[in-house]
């Protein structure tokens, strides 16, 4: 089949006997064709699955989109509620989570790329940040429940924000470090040569030239936390009423989808599909924007 097996069988024989050589060649090309077809089939299957997810969202979600969804709060089944409080809750928690997590992630990334290169502490931080990046998000929910819900006697929007911020940090760390490492030394050397202190070089030269990449990281982080459900279940809990107080349980789209999709009420399931449609296309739009930004930078 491969080059090695044909040579092991003895090239003299094969080259003398044209029939054997032809049969071998046919077999090799047949195997090649079979694998190619299988790979194309796998890719087509992947595309079909993506299409199936998007189409079922549009199919079932679009039917329920109306102004009520955006102007009314969640209500008991049968009374024509909307998703206003859930949408607002998701916006609030995503914005605060990003606002808290981004500066920390940015500083950690800066430390890894600019200060700690190769030091044992930096290597440990990088390792731990990578673990946090892929750690099950439900565990982050449990952790925040232990430190920010139980001691303070209740579920709260602020606990949800903390959980989301913890998810943002490693994403921003990763992109920041990568982008800072890509900057050409000449830029830094030029700034240092002018007598700029290191922090000014980092803030005014490195951050600026890595801006597109860093913003991409932040956008990806926003897209990730906007759709997170598991870490919010035990922290901001969800709220069927209008509430923008961070001290109270706060509604969010993913948690509302989770509660509604599993219910037995027709109109709640319909609203869950609408919510799913909104969150998916929101998340995908942010993702595409992030990619375009990065491409422009390149």
């Amino acid at each position: 089949m491969s080059a090695t097996t044909s040579s092991a069988r003895g090239i003299p024989g094969a080259s003398k006997d044209l029939n054997v050589a032809r049969a071998l060649g046919r077999r090799r090309h047949l195997t090649n064709t079979i694998v190619k077809v299988a790979c194309i089939a796998a890719t087509v299957l992947g595309m079909v699955l993506l299409a199936s997810i998007l189409l079922s969202l549009i199919w079932r979600g679009a039917a329920g989109i109306s102004l009520t969804v955006f102007t009314h709060n969640t209500k008991p089944p049968g009374s024509g509620g909307g998703l206003l409080n859930a949408i607002v809750g998701t916006l609030i928690q995503t914005v605060i989570g990003t606002a808290v997590g981004t500066p920390i992630g940015l500083m950690v990334g800066t430390y890894l790329a600019e200060y700690g290169r190769g030091s044992p502490l930096a290597n440990t931080v990088r390792f731990v940040s990578d673990i946090l990046l892929s750690a099950p998000s439900i565990l982050i929910g449990l952790f925040v429940y232990e430190i920010a819900v139980e001691p303070f006697g209740g579920f709260s929007g602020i606990a949800g924000c903390i959980a989301l911020a913890i998810i943002v940090i490693p994403i921003v760390v990763r992109t920041t470090e990568d982008m800072l490492s890509l900057i050409t030394p000449a830029l830094r050397e030029a700034a240092i040569g002018l007598g700029a202190p290191k922090y000014k070089v980092i803030v005014q030269i490195c951050y600026r030239s890595a801006m597109d990449g860093i913003v991409t990281g932040v956008l990806l982080a926003v897209a990730r936390i906007a759709g997170e459900t598991a870490p919010l279940l035990f922290t901001s809990l969800g709220n069927l009423n209008w509430s923008i107080s961070l001290g109270q349980p706060m509604a969010s789209l993913p948690v509302t989808i989770y509660q509604y999709a599993g219910s037995a009420f027709e109109d709640w399931v319909q609203l869950a599909w609408v919510g799913a449609l909104l969150i998916t296309f929101g998340v995908l739009a942010i993702n595409i924007a992030a990619r375009l930004l990065l491409r422009r930078g390149k």
Partner: peptide, 14 residues
């Protein structure tokens, strides 16, 4: 990559 970005709750519903 977009398939990887779809929130997990959507996979659950789907």
């Amino acid at each position: 990559e977009l398939l990887a970005a779809v929130p997990s709750i959507i996979y659950g519903m789907w």
